[in-house]
Amino acid sequence: MRMNPAFAFCLAAALALAASAAQAHGRARKTGHAAHVHGQARLMLAVAGNAVQIGLETPLDNLLGFEHAPRTAKEKQAVDALRARLDTPQTLFELDPAARCQVESVRIAGLPHARTAHDHADLEADFSFTCAQPPRALTLQLFSAFPRLQRLDVEQVTPAGQALHRLGPGQSRLEW
């Protein structure tokens, strides 16, 4: 039997895709499936002395309005704007000015690129700050920056201990 080369190529590609999907799924099986709820996000805030670490886990939909690879020029622009915004975390997380905090590092994982092919995708970002003095408060600009975000569960570990705060739009200040 003679196979049409184009068909053969498609078949090979499909098989490869299926295999990689199965592999990805196998990995997920072992580490589990994290919850993925549009409109909700998790913020982890750790404050120790002059160091502040902030972790953000959110479905991409909350930040972009879509979770697939950017297709149109507009979508590409949105991804670029998001990257730029996340790269300047001091505009998203305003630590109290008296503490004089500086961005130390930013790590972003999960921004969609041309090869992303997931139905659902999450963004994980870690930000660290160093301050001149221990900060006592944080004002979040997440709700104003990302209007699709409706609920933020803030888990905080500060000198005051561990706590959980559930914030909605309009609640933006954390003190400890």
């Binding site: 580490t31 120790a48 670490q53 561990q162 706590a163």
Partner: peptide
């Protein structure tokens, strides 16, 4: 104490067994 989220992530992604690391103060809230 500030490393708690990192350790939590490492434990929750532990490959050989499904494990859970919970922050007791957060769970209490």
């Amino acid at each position: 104490r500030a490393a708690v989220f990192k350790v939590q992530r490492d434990i929750n992604r532990y490959a050989d067994e499904p494990l859970l690391a919970a922050l007791p103060g957060v769970a209490l809230d």
